[in-house]
Design a protein around this nucleic acid. Structure first.
Lengths: 121, 121
DNA sequence: TAGACTGTTCGACGTGAGGCGAACACGTAA
DNA sequence: TTACGTGTTCGCCTCACGTCGAACAGTCTA
């Protein structure tokens, strides 16, 4: 709690904790991708450049509290990486790492959006 | 309720209702596979011949009521097909159809079991 | 410095999923 | 016919998930 612990020009915001897809169970990865909101996030992210999208820039029908929760789930499933940039937080899809650990899964998710747009509810 | 409605040597047990993977949403397929019990069922089924395994022949730590529920989930996700054989109900993994609709997914699930046996909980 | 903006955390809520035992239906064997 | 085995359905319970509003912490800008 001393002054020194906070010193050394450390960032004031606690940076997000990441999990590498290597340390993610298959069940966790599948569960993370089985939610429509998170599926939208992943797909929009896949169509953007790395570190291009802020958390608030996605077109999803939930408020920011729920949105923050979904990003946390994606993070702990090894699907995204986040970085603080000023007041905003920018995102990147961990395409290569995830593909290496769960081959074909990300492709399936992204392709499914294009090939079969209107699925049953 | 008349005698004729039951006639024509119809089976007494109502046969299970099936869903073709074609009519299954990606979210549904992923959710079905994100449960450890169902994952075990699918994997054991993949290691057996078609119509070889009865519902009660799987090594899962749940009672028969829950087991019956899991089979219903797998059925409505287009993952298995069931048929009545006397008092028992025998199963088949819809490997080809499912692979056609969700390419790579089943392979990922089955391979993951072999390549990474001990995953984090 | 005051305010606007971005995102996280907290507590609460409703819903649905997964588990169980009990009861039931059906098929089979004694 | 009776008894047993297999699997489904029902009601109930518990817990995790998704959602929200409110409050908070930082960052940037006026």
């Amino acid at each position: 709690m001393s002054r020194e612990n906070v010193a050394a020009s450390a960032p004031h915001r606690t940076p997000p904790e990441h999990v590498h897809p290597r340390d993610v169970a298959l069940e966790t990865a599948l569960a993370a991708l089985s939610d429509p909101v998170r599926l939208t996030l992943v797909r929009e992210l896949a169509g953007s450049e790395d570190w291009e999208r802020t958390c608030g820039s996605f077109d999803v029908p939930v408020r920011k509290a729920a949105l923050s929760h979904h990003f946390a789930v994606l993070r702990s499933a090894g699907l995204i990486e986040q970085r603080d940039a000023g007041a905003k937080r920018i995102n990147r899809l961990r395409k290569a790492e995830f593909e290496e650990c769960f081959p074909g899964l990300l492709d399936l998710v992204l392709r499914d959006a294009a090939v079969r747009p209107g699925r049953p509810e």
